[in-house]
Design a protein around this nucleic acid. Structure first.
Lengths: 131, 131
DNA sequence: CAGCATCCGCCCGGATACTG
DNA sequence: CAGTATCCGGGCGGATGCTG
């Protein structure tokens, strides 16, 4: 376990890890991946995604989708129709990524009460004059 | 597994999950936690952390530490000495959190080649005139 | 030494308008 | 329908200067 924690920030790929961690932490990426994962076919078209993610703007949906596609988590299929139709699908890599992420989310859910309590205590101290 | 992915964004605590995921994804938080985890005592003083995290500014180190303390991941101990000494320590909660995070990091390490390859392909296509 | 206060550039995410 | 093109405000992270 000490070895694992050492592994985590050992070597020069700290940048790589942070690059990916940043995506995990950004506003829409994971929500989008999960939204796709929830659909039985793991597939949806642009407008469907926009509706499902409710207040997301097209611009942000587009860029998020592009980044996901670039990383190989999502594939994009254009149908030569009119009106145009574009479908996005979770790749095996994208599906695979969900597993470790789920664990983190589960941990957060399980420990949220502790965190919330800690925040309440911290904030209570801060509001009072020192000691 | 379908149930898990459903769980991930079910219910109203999507906000909670994103709140925490954002911290995971920010520039210094995880690096700071891991840095503390790497020290045998899981303890270090402010100046030590600043050196270990190299180009971090005091301001950012301070705020990151405060957030971590507020959430209960790190504890802060002030010694009534002169010159002042303050030590930060990973709490059991903070140590516990590392496990699921490690899995994500391991996944990223293992799959980084695939991702990088995908990016290369994507960028190559983009550089060329369409088809 | 360990910080708080202040200032600031940059980029993320959103709003709006237009097009193939 | 599925984008692209612009514009823009807010917040994050960094630099600097000052204290207990």
């Amino acid at each position: 376990m000490a070895r694992e924690t050492t592994e985590m920030c050992r070597s020069d790929d700290v940048g790589v890890v942070r690059d990916l961690l940043t995506k995990v932490g950004d506003k829409w990426t994971m929500l989008l991946v999960v939204t796709l994962a929830r659909t039985p076919s793991k597939r949806a078209r642009f407008s469907e995604l926009q509706r499902m993610l409710e207040p997301i703007s097209q611009r942000v949906l587009t860029t998020t989708l592009r980044d996901l596609e670039r990383d190989g988590f999502v594939s994009r299929e254009v149908f030569a129709e009119v009106p145009p139709r574009v479908e996005y699908e979770l790749t095996p890599l994208g599906i695979d990524m969900l597993e470790p992420i789920e664990r983190v989310v589960e941990w957060m859910r399980a420990n949220w009460p502790s965190i919330e309590a800690s925040r309440a205590r911290f904030d209570a101290r801060g509001a009072m004059p020192p000691r």
